[in-house]
Design a protein around this nucleic acid. Structure first.
Lengths: 225, 225
DNA sequence: GCGATCACGGTACTGGGTACCGTCTAGGCT
DNA sequence: AGCCTAGACGGTACCCAGTACCGTGATCGC
């Protein structure tokens, strides 16, 4: 009859008890007892009491890395967007449990920090791949970090709206996600835009008045020749 | 003879012991004993063993908030840059202790997370003020978050370079900081650019070849008149 | 000089996390 | 079948961070 694994029983027991008594008032021994396992087994499955709240984090992280690994500089935009979309979709699939976790983490500072630590791992994964696409030079590292942070921030912004119920359906959430990714892309210069590889990016000139224009015009014509 | 305060003695004792035996092998009782105080007093001064590693964090956070509070949308760019500069300058003033802390946090995961939590507080402070300058509307929140994250990322990038010794002098660090802030500003649209309030921002023209230029030149002259 | 306040140190307790050990079970080999 | 190894499990004992509480001594205002 497909007995749920010990790991799943622990997660279920933990979420039940956290809902009943709150996070702090629940001990690991309580969770283990309800799940029908020893306290030792709990810590074999989860590194800490906090980790049981984010049971799929590790798996999600490897999924992101796998998606990013298949992208190239030419397909960076869609690769990054899809990798972030994997996370969003996972939460949408989780449904009510994701929202319960959100309400729980909002009230428990320790869990907020744990969540941030997880997000940080996402950022580092994105940074690593984007940095690679940018050539891996020290000068491009800051740009890679800026882009990675922007992508993760955009994703989290939409996810948070959905978790709070501001976006009712999964379809709405995905639409908002596409909009957020578009806004993020408009703020950062990710490789892989149309034509970006074909001709070099134009330089930017700031022309304040007609005198500026007349002064610069010869050099402009020269560059365009 | 200006006896050092109990708080300072605790910080000094902690850094000494962490250097001698490492973070994990040092207990709070050890620190308190060397500082000549009771274990209770340690926890009155610092919320946790981790907090003693970042003793000036709270003070720094209020300094940032104070600087940002004096800025307006017109002075946003310089306000944000200076607020971030306060943090950099604090680390530069700290000198060798900052570098010791950096080496310590790099080897202790718990301290890395504590540091990230502190950085997160910076981000939230920046976000709150920038969001206010943008009108405080829900639509402008994502932009505010993107800008705040970019500023903090740029700052951290330079700070990390200095901590690692890639930037030898404080002057070099400040110069790199100005460059990083310029790059950040080029990626995000912060209110308060020169002339932004006086005359509207110039439109951006993409001129790919001489034919483009000739075609657009009359309109450009017209706009500048 | 005298009571109120407060910072301090000491004690006792809870609970997360680790180390270790004995046991039970699931296979692989002869 | 019988043996043997590996691995998962539960139990016990321990360490230490963090909290609650209490008694005490110093400092200040009246």
């Amino acid at each position: 009859m497909a007995e749920p694994s010990a790991r799943e029983r622990i997660v279920d027991a933990a979420f039940e008890l956290f809902a009943e008594r709150g996070y702090d008032a629940t001990t690991v021994e309580d969770i283990a007892a309800r799940a029908g396992v020893g306290r030792t087994t709990f810590f074999r499955q989860f590194r800490s009491k906090e980790h049981v709240v984010f049971p799929d984090h590790e798996q999600l992280l490897t999924a992101i890395a796998a998606r990013l690994a298949t992208a190239t500089p030419r397909t960076a935009v869609v690769g990054v967007s899809e990798a972030a979309g994997l996370v969003l979709q996972h939460y949408l699939d989780e449904g009510e449990r994701a929202r319960r976790r959100y309400r729980l983490t909002r009230t428990v500072p320790a869990l907020q920090e744990r969540e941030r630590a997880g997000i940080r791992q996402y950022e580092r994964t994105f940074t690593r791949h984007i940095h690679g696409w940018l050539g891996g030079t020290p000068e491009s590292l800051l740009r890679a970090e800026l882009i990675a942070n922007a992508v993760v921030t955009g994703h989290n912004h939409v996810l948070r709206a959905w978790l709070r119920g501001h976006l009712a359906t999964a379809g709405e959430a995905r639409r908002a996600f596409r909009a957020a990714m578009a806004e993020v892309e408009s703020h950062v210069d990710l490789p892989g835009r149309e034509g970006a590889a074909a001709d070099p990016l134009p330089a930017v000139l700031v022309v304040r008045d007609a005198a500026d224009l007349d002064r610069l015009l010869p050099q402009i014509r020269d560059l365009l020749a």
